[in-house]
Design a protein around this nucleic acid. Structure first.
Lengths: 191, 191
DNA sequence: GTCTCGCTAGATCGATCAATCTAGTCGCTA
DNA sequence: TAGCGACTAGATTGATCGATCTAGCGAGAC
């Protein structure tokens, strides 16, 4: 494997994109293969567990992407907390507009589908949420907010944005993202 | 159409249950037919548009169910608003526990799957959310909260609970529901 | 050189998919 | 009782599903 984007990466890319937009069950492995210009053999070489393994990899890929995005917004302690939150939700709204309400959370659609049916994928999605929450929780702690409250506010923030993504994609409006962001800021403990 | 629970109702029941838990794409019409003890002919007689028509009906069924639930919590003006909200989220947590994290929002899983692929179902899900929001918005208005703020808080509440449902099912924990509920109460305008 | 092995390649498999089809049953009206 | 429309019944269709299979490529080891 010299340098170019290798087959395994192309497979995960195509899978993640399709799973996020169309859903896990609705996306056939053949479509993923076609998009990534890979044959059957490659898929089952890199992912012996088949579609489910590919799903886990796609979730982990999305998890890392969104973790970096979250860090970008919340690890900058020079920006006031409420501004970080506002920008986080506004950025999400911009992304939705830019992709015609197709790309929102990279793992939400999959997570909803397989929460009750695939333990491995469910666990991967759970780890993703926890890693994102940890970033915001740490920032809140740095603001001097107590441990329990920081945790609660961080969890609340991701509940708010995930729900807002769902309502926004469903109603084709960014209103939910704006309302949810404002709500999270309003619920911060008084400093 | 006389009175008894006819085939059409059994079809919608089975479809709604399966779509909500396993997802729309992952549920075959054959499974729905089997569970509702109905033959192919009946499905395409009652739902000429096939699976998609059945999906719309399942969303509308779920929409009505959850509308009634929301009204049960928020139309009682004798109970203080924050208590209504707390009970709403606690009730959701109880439901998740009781169903081993299978039954949450009746339309969330479907909505996430088809938001970018099926206009009719997406519109039905959008109408559902709007109808639920209207109930809470009206209650907030009755509390003397200004029109804009009432709307924002109502939207925020459903963002919070939908996101909390997703995180709760994914992490198999009711913590997100408790955190989200507390957040919505904390974000209410001071009275 | 030639052997090995990571990887590509795609034909092929049985199962299952949503949907269509013809046939038949039942209750109502005339 | 004859006829009609609403509904049930399920065999069948072609497409597509995820997965397995054998075959071969190409670069490094020795």
């Amino acid at each position: 494997m010299p340098d170019a984007p290798p087959t395994r990466e192309r497979l995960i890319d195509a899978a993640a994109r399709n799973f996020r937009r169309r859903g896990y069950a609705a996306t056939g492995v053949k479509a993923v293969l076609r998009e990534s210009h890979a044959p059957y053999g490659s898929l089952y070489h890199h992912f012996p567990g088949g579609k489910s393994d590919l799903g886990v990899a796609a979730i982990e890929r999305g998890s890392e992407e969104y973790l970096e995005l979250t860090q970008m917004y919340f690890d900058d302690d020079d920006t006031p907390l409420d501004v970080c939150i506002e920008r986080f939700f506004l950025g999400a709204a911009d992304l939705l507009i830019a992709t015609d309400f197709e790309d929102a959370c990279p793992i939400a659609t999959i997570a909803g589908e397989i929460a009750s049916t695939d333990a491995a994928m469910r666990a991967a999605a759970g780890r993703a949420f926890e890693s994102w929450i940890a970033v915001v929780e740490a920032r809140l702690a740095r603001e001097g907010i107590t441990r329990d409250t920081a945790r609660r506010c961080a969890v609340q923030l991701f509940c708010a944005i995930e729900g807002a993504f769902l309502l926004a994609r469903t109603t084709r409006s960014t209103e939910p993202l704006l309302a949810a962001g404002a709500g999270v800021i309003a619920a911060l403990p008084a400093t």
